[in-house]
Design a protein around this nucleic acid. Structure first.
Lengths: 407, 407
DNA sequence: TTTGTTAGTAAAGGTCACTAACAAACAAAA
DNA sequence: TTTTGTTTGTTAGTGACCTTTACTAACAAA
């Protein structure tokens, strides 16, 4: 049997994904069950792929609406009760699904046995490398509920040292896990390709760093690495009520974004989708940017820049004008994107004391003024509700998608 | 058996898709074999879906590279020779694939039997409703080679009359078909939803018009309707060598665009993706637009506007400046889109005597100036090579995708 | 108690792609 | 010329998968 065939024969997620003893080194390698992987152009479909797709559908349905019976699932997914029973039997054996007992409400017919994803039977480890001077991480259950946190100061740490720091915080999180670890998700700044290689992350001094491979080898766990803003968009989509056509803009030290188009994450031709920080805004100049150009979105919207301007503001009106201008510039930059993609939502993530107020209001006004009302009539511009944990939650979504096919 | 079950049982494209006698009214109803349809969220996958997906893969491989044997296909697609033989047997029975005879070159082993899609065994009807005063249409083979053309003057024709005109030109094209018609593709201006309903097309006086349904009933053929610029993007992707992350901008009476992201067409939250004509460009005003705003992309790039400006130009330098300015504005408007989506290509479609020259050069320069070179380094900005037939070719792609799953 | 409904399971059947094995047809080496 | 090895395409049989059909269990309502 060839390697490829062996892989093809492997389906499902083994229930023994990782030991919960906390050893940093015992678990199964990364592997994808997701249907998405099989749908790529040129990929044939075998019966077993159909099975894992249907299996993912069942998990998705259970994930979204707890308290479903086998019969409910059959109606929801469109398969027969027989097939659902068979799939559920597998999932129960793998400890991914549990029976909650019989339905209590009074209805004719045999009472249903309620099912749910075993939300506490596995945990996910999420890492957020996007902060300037500290790495953050958390252990969560499958709902994204944080069970344990770790932080690590990394001021001035770059290159290999930064990799070691990442491995260290991961090790601590793995040790803190109280249930088998389904997988590890990492949100990194910079450009990250589909294989989890950090092509470029200037702040961390990383270039062509195969972070996913490194961490996966070290932890012996399935690891997935993606850009922080992209991962935030995933989180908003799954946990924040984000729609199928959505943009998440993240303002921090720089400005980045993640895009969901047609329900799918956008990666871009060079894995650099969402990088809007250095797109010039308007035709009337602006401050000089670190990149050499003038009037980049970052010069208007990066938090340090806003804070510097606000430091000179003496009155509340001045303060508001500064924030409104930042919002306007965001609106100017995103209007063509919103129009071209016919987005339904623009979600902002960042320090709410700065963003949630005049800034976001001005962005919404500007967006509406500069696009065609007929097309963007029901555009929603809002803050994320996920707060500072958004990257960690995105990591959960990545792992759920990668390991279970849930999204 | 329920309707849904009956549909589920129906797979493949019957070889008797339509009579070639030219009667306007004898054929089978629209039906989708495409895998894409089955991959939607919440859609279960049955073995037969797997089969039609694999079938589509075989057709795709044959479509792209003629002169493949069964064994070649097995290697290409990843299925076994046995399975390929079985699929090919079906396809030959349906007259979609033909044997070309044995391979002539001298190699060890049994000589292979060459296969090809029966490119002239079926025809496709394409309709282009995007011109101001005339409807254009063509009958093509499966390669997109035009076999017959029809035109119809529709100056001042709107509403129901325009629908009748569409039906008339379609009837003529169907009558001219010399082989069974695989399907009909229609490129319409305005907003068209996924069901082929024209939600809004002011120029034609259409609003919530179920054009696909109307034409499908009239012609008794599978009909697919989509926005003209979107369909043009499809054509560029399949016949024009367009990449997986691409934008096609169409300048005509107005300005529209079509987007391909991650190899997939973008539809948008309100089916209005690509509508960039009324996005404001820059922060320095501009001419008043019919929409009421100032400085919309259309005021810079719509062909009538450019022509009006050129009429006042006396020197070649003035003429070039006007064209360069139009290109610059296009670059300003598309820079955020190119950056956010990390597009690899921007393709222009329209009158080449105006677009292909200073305009496109200025657009390329502006795009590069206003984005981050690191991210858009290998961005290609160019004219389409498909000329005026681009909409008709897009119709072919729609039909191939919808009826055969080829894309 | 009877009737009707709903949940879940068991057995049998059809579809699909796979493996194994083989004949046909050729080139190249012996 | 014969033998060997390669490649193509087919036949036969197998296992995976989901369906249909039919059943039991468990309940509400008449």
């Amino acid at each position: 049997m060839t390697t490829e065939e062996a892989q093809r024969r492997t389906s499902g997620v083994s229930a023994t994904t990782a030991t919960s003893t906390g050893e940093f080194g015992i678990a199964n390698p990364a592997r994808s069950t997701a249907w998405a992987g099989a749908v790529q152009a040129g990929a044939r479909v075998l019966p077993e792929h159909a099975r894992s797709h249907n299996r993912a559908l069942v998990l998705q349905a259970l994930f979204r609406a707890e308290g479903l019976s086998r019969a409910d699932l059959a109606r929801e997914v469109g398969l027969t009760r027989v097939t659902i029973s068979d799939l559920i039997s597998d999932l129960i054996n793998e400890n991914l699904v549990i029976e909650l007992g019989v339905r209590t409400d009074s209805r004719p017919g045999k009472p249903a046995t309620m099912l749910d994803i075993n939300r506490n039977g596995f945990v996910v480890v999420g890492l957020d490398l996007s902060f300037n001077s500290r790495f953050r991480g958390a252990v969560t259950n499958l709902d994204g509920t944080v069970l344990h946190r770790e932080e690590l100061d990394v001021t001035g740490v770059t290159g290999t040292e930064a990799v070691e720091a990442t491995a260290l915080i991961l090790e601590r999180l793995v040790a803190a896990a109280t249930a088998p670890i389904l997988g590890v998700g990492v949100g990194s700044p910079g450009i990250v390709d589909a294989t989890g290689t950090v092509l470029s992350a200037p702040n961390l001094g990383w270039k062509d760093l195969p972070l996913q491979q490194i961490l996966s080898m070290r932890a012996q766990l399935p690891v997935q690495v993606a850009n922080d803003a992209n991962i935030a968009a995933l989180a908003e989509r799954t946990f924040g009520g984000g729609g199928a056509d959505m943009m998440l803009v993240r303002a921090g030290r720089g400005v980045g974004s993640g895009l969901i188009v047609g329900g799918q994450q956008v990666y871009g031709s060079g894995s650099a989708a969402g990088e809007i920080g250095h797109v010039m805004v308007g035709t009337d100049g602006g401050d000089t940017c670190v990149c050499g150009k003038s009037g980049c979105l970052e010069t208007w919207l990066a938090i340090p820049r806003i804070e510097a301007r606000l430091a000179n503001a003496t009155t509340e009106a001045e303060r508001e004008a500064i924030l409104r201008e930042a919002g306007e510039r965001l609106g100017i930059a995103t209007a063509p994107i919103v129009g071209a993609l016919n987005l339904g939502e623009v979600v902002l993530s960042g320090p709410s004391e700065l963003i949630d107020g005049p800034l976001i209001a001005a962005a919404a006004d500007t967006l509406r003024d500069r696009t065609m009302a007929e097309f963007v009539g029901d555009l929603s511009v809002r803050m994320t509700t996920l707060g500072r944990d958004i990257i960690v939650l995105g990591a959960v979504v990545m792992v759920l998608t990668g390991q279970l096919g849930v999204y």
